[in-house]
């Protein structure tokens, strides 16, 4: 357990604002500080468009904070960092590449040897259950399968921290449920530090070791929950339901 409390990523006092329609600056992320521990499954939970994606982009180095900083293993993040993996909400698969080429995109850009990265890619392709689809193009896959490719691609790049940005938001409820099971299986086999963003309370409770609840726009930390329910979790378990109710009552409704 002590290993859990080794801080991997330190987010200190970051804020970000954007000009609104009237040209005034409006806060999207308001002074957030957060430690991400090694090996934990951290869920960032917030209603609708609460500024979570902005926070995420800053963590990933795709966006610069106005104030504060993000530090990974003692090193400040100022640009996209290959130590961070990303599973995008809209999958972001490159339509001109096959499943295999999408998954090996990262290692190829880095100039790794083909033999090594193909082997690794195959391992993750098998793990997410896409064996036999290596040569398919994204348009030939269903929504759930596309996101499996997205997950395999992120893992194959061997990140220290894996960011998943509402990865199942576009899927129907049943596919979503099975993808959540899938992620749990993968996490069990290949433990990494994961930052998972969602607006779905049930999903947060299914997966998270720790849940950070955000306010509606701008994003501030409202409450932090440690979820001490053993996995895999039963959605009809009373403790689960009570905690779900508590979080639900604490969440801002974004109609």
């Amino acid at each position: 357990m002590e290993q859990k409390y080794l801080t991997r990523l330190k987010i200190s006092n970051i804020s970000k604002s954007f000009p609104n329609k009237e040209g005034k600056r409006e806060l999207a992320v308001d002074n957030i500080s957060l430690d991400v521990y090694d090996g934990e499954f951290l869920v960032l939970l917030g209603p609708g468009r609460c500024g979570k994606s902005v926070l995420l982009n800053m963590i990933a180095g795709l966006m610069k904070p106005d104030e504060g900083k993000v530090v990974l293993d003692g090193e400040e993040i100022t640009k996209p960092n290959p130590q961070m993996g990303m599973v995008f909400q809209k999958t972001g698969l490159l339509p001109w590449l096959t499943v295999m080429d999408n998954i090996t995109f990262g290692p190829r850009q880095r100039g790794e040897s083909k033999k090594i990265y193909t082997e690794r890619a195959q391992k993750y392709i098998d793990m997410v259950g896409l064996t036999g689809f290596e040569k398919s193009y994204p348009y030939q896959l269903s929504g759930g399968m596309k996101q499996r490719v997205g997950i395999a691609r992120a893992y194959t790049n061997e990140p220290k921290i894996l960011i998943m940005d509402e990865p199942f938001g576009a899927l129907d409820a049943q596919t979503r449920y099975s993808m959540e099971q899938e992620v749990q299986n993968i996490v069990e086999k290949d433990r990494r530090t994961i930052i998972f963003v969602t607006n779905n309370i049930e999903e947060a409770l299914m997966l998270g070791d720790r849940i950070i609840l955000f306010t509606n726009y701008p994003a501030r930390i409202k409450k932090i929950y440690d979820v001490n329910i053993s996995k895999p979790r039963d959605t009809m378990d009373r403790t689960f339901l009570m905690l779900r109710k508590e979080i639900s009552e604490n969440t801002d409704l974004a109609l």
């Binding site: 209603p47 129907d172 409820a173 607006n199 779905n200 309370i201 049930e202 779900r244 639900s248 969440t251 409704l253 974004a254 109609l255």
Partner: peptide, 11 residues
């Protein structure tokens, strides 16, 4: 309400 989160769904 297939796509909604529970907070929204209950509402």
């Amino acid at each position: 309400y297939g796509q909604m989160d529970i907070k929204m769904r209950f509402y």
